[in-house]
Design a protein around this nucleic acid. Sequence first.
DNA 1: TAGGATCCACTGGTGGATCCGT
DNA 2: ACGGATCCACCAGTGGATCCTA
Lengths: 225, 225
Amino acid sequence: MTPAPPVDTIDLLHRARGLAGRTVAEIALSLGLAVPELGTRGKGRIGNLVEKALGATAGSAAAPDFPHLGIELKTIPVDGSGRPLESTFVCTISLGDADTTSWETSLVRAKLAHVLWLPIVTARGRPAAERRVGTPLLWQPTADQEAILRADFDDIMGRIGVGGVEGLTARAGRWLQVRPKARTGRARTWSFGPEGELIATVPRGFYLRARFTQALLRDPSAVPA
Amino acid sequence: MTPAPPVDTIDLLHRARGLAGRTVAEIALSLGLAVPELGTRGKGRIGNLVEKALGATAGSAAAPDFPHLGIELKTIPVDGSGRPLESTFVCTISLGDADTTSWETSLVRAKLAHVLWLPIVTARGRPAAERRVGTPLLWQPTADQEAILRADFDDIMGRIGVGGVEGLTARAGRWLQVRPKARTGRARTWSFGPEGELIATVPRGFYLRARFTQALLRDPSAVPA
DNA sequence: TAGGATCCACTGGTGGATCCGT
DNA sequence: ACGGATCCACCAGTGGATCCTA
């Protein structure tokens, strides 16, 4: 019942376009799956559903959703006019490697190198089943865009190197930012404090600000503020 | 329904003696739990049951079962005359640290520093529910015993340092031995080969040979072959 | 007999994201 | 608007051990 992986990029894009206009309920039904609930329950379930619908490789960490194509799938909740309602999670940040990781070798660069954006038209307060897939966009950063992402990355990693991760706020970064991930007070990861001492901290992730993804969805080569 | 932790060593020993002579079925019933199946299903379930019955801390890794007492609980299947039917698993071996770990700081020493042995009288082929708790033994290694355990540990770690973990067999060690742990071909851990190269291997654990535990149960200060 | 192979329950960490006060 | 907090599914790894052939 689960579709095979797409044979190539064209195939993937065709399939994604085939989902456009369909509701979450319809997609779930066609896969023989339960319609995901949302709200405070099951925040990531639409993302998982769409992955299955497009034949993405299941649950493979540190690899793109479509490994043979090198393409990452990202759903993004948008309002009726196509504006993102949320920032977009990119990946977890390796807090221990702040001083030895470069943009070139970073996971965040790998994730953003080639993305299939799939807007999910979302009316707040309505059942998830009603949400509808919008027009997909296959995107690779332009040189200008990547330069800014790299600058954000270097800025963030530099701040961690100087003051430790606890001194970093979500205010750093023009398009990329770092915010907490996972339930506060439960998950723990290891990092370094201002004096270089080893400390336990909440896991954090890279996110793309909504103002960047908003511009992107309208013009893939946009360079917004 | 789950007992509170024992307040002190005497309390623990009293409780353990209170289990002596009782069957697995009786203990499960008194805790309001299902009687564990065994055989090829649920090999560790009696151990878990007894932990609960004695108020051990649940599922705490790298800590003794009774942290405030520093005591480790080990069930051990024995025949009608009290002879162990199996070797006893002690703990996982840290393969990456072979050259930097000493007996003094090792997990295996910590685990064996103070053990509450609880024999489980086991007739092969009979239902697990019928198994009966034997006479508990609270044990700490004598100086002579610890010297041999340390020698085994050093021997094993030395062999790993020389030939890598893949050259190590369960034949090494007088009382302690190293054997595979977890389903072959599934779990993987990282180690070093003969040339110092990083390799993936099956996880392994320290076990106490049955000839040692057999002597121990008859005479806590025994120094068998 | 015992070395090598294997089994189940549980949970912490990861990947998928959205919630919600200020 | 947005920074900080939080939610669920899934799975590999760990802890509890015993099985099973040669």
